[in-house]
């Protein structure tokens, strides 16, 4: 069967209904539905223990669900696991590479296990090493690789057979910022070539950057789904945050800004800071500053804020998407 000629149900390459999985008393997945149309990227976003890895493990045949059904590229994950495995590539949280083998030997072995044959396996290994900027390290044992290089090798391993569906489970967890961005570029390239991708992440900016559609999961259930923009809208649109020099003039500032606001103006924490919901972006900010200046109101600070996925996540799950076990793992964007 050609890699792109797989039969799919209703244009969805990945389709899951009512997936459930419990480990002893802990319910990891509690009735998860999801569908990923061909050629799109679904980001599964959630904190540690939300059920992301369990979902990926079921969809990649590594785990049998207690209940529910799922098909991947037209094959049932429980009844036809071998067919599913032929059509998917997986890169997990821990780089699944053989440390003693070189980068080339790792990819060559995977190619042979996908039954590409000797010649195609070797050619494909060289091709992927070049594409993932690992040519210079190709003949060094993988244990000499940096964390970022290992992840790239692992990702290359997932792509050896040119499969139509890829699963990436937290592909950048634990990487430094430069390696993350490098990996994003590689992932974007493969999506551009038509690969259907399911990506899990606990980094909101990563989902924002890579996914067409985001499903927020927590406690083994989907709690929201939409495009990155739709999710941001759930927490409200853009707003001006203005801090006046003296709390005494906050009231007059409020009446000056009222005509520009698209909703109710609220104080934010301190009485001298106002949150003004607006639509229209920078021109409205300029107008607001002119009006405040004309009214003789002195301001100490002003900014235009767009809601981030962090805001959305906080609103939806009620707890912060902080990764406790990764102190200073290069997430410099947690705005104050």
């Amino acid at each position: 069967m050609s890699s792109n000629g797989v039969s799919t149900s209703g244009g969805n390459v990945i389709e899951a209904r009512g997936l459930r999985k419990a480990y002893k008393e802990v319910v990891a997945l509690d009735g998860l539905d999801l569908s990923v149309p061909e050629g799109t990227v679904l980001g599964l976003l959630g904190p540690n223990g939300a059920g992301k890895t369990t979902a990926v493990s079921i969809l990649t045949t590594l785990l049998t669900p207690d209940a529910g059904t799922a098909t991947v590229a037209g094959a049932d994950v429980v009844r036809e696991p071998h067919e599913v495995r032929k059509r998917i590539g997986l890169a997990g949280q821990n780089a699944a590479v053989d440390e003693t083998l070189t980068g080339f030997e790792n990819l060559d072995m995977i190619g042979r296990l996908y039954r590409l044959g000797k010649d195609r396996s070797r050619a494909r290994a060289r091709e992927l090493l070049a594409r993932f900027s690992l040519e210079d390290a190709a003949d060094r044992p993988a244990k000499t690789y940096s964390g970022g290089m290992r992840r790239r090798l692992d990702l290359a391993g997932a792509m050896v057979a040119d499969v139509p569906v890829l699963f990436l489970d937290e592909p950048t967890t634990g990487l430094d910022p430069a390696s993350r961005i490098e990996l994003w570029t590689v992932i974007e390239d493969m999506v551009d070539q038509g690969t259907t991708l399911l990506l899990t992440t606990q980094y909101l900016d990563e989902a924002d950057q890579l996914a067409d559609d985001i499903m927020v999961i927590d406690g083994g259930r989907a709690i929201a789904q939409g495009t990155p923009d739709e999710l941001k809208e759930m927490v409200g649109g853009e707003r001006i945050e203005v801090t006046v020099a003296d709390a005494a003039v906050a009231e007059s500032a409020r009446s000056v800004l009222a005509p520009l606001a698209s909703g109710e103006i609220r104080p934010d924490g301190r009485p001298e800071t106002l949150l003004v919901p607006i639509t229209g972006g920078a021109p409205v900010l300029t107008q607001a500053l002119r009006n405040l200046d004309a009214a003789g109101i002195e301001i100490r600070d002003v900014m235009l804020r767009r809601p981030t996925l962090d805001d959305a996540f906080l609103t939806l799950t009620g707890h912060l998407a902080v990764v406790e076990d990764q102190p200073g793992a290069g997430r410099g964007e947690g705005e104050g």
Partner: peptide, 17 residues
């Protein structure tokens, strides 16, 4: 105990290999 087993699990290879 090695990471490579994770890879083997997801490959369409014989479970006896």
């Amino acid at each position: 105990q090695k990471g490579i087993i994770q890879r083997f699990k997801s490959l369409p290879m014989s479970r006896a290999a």
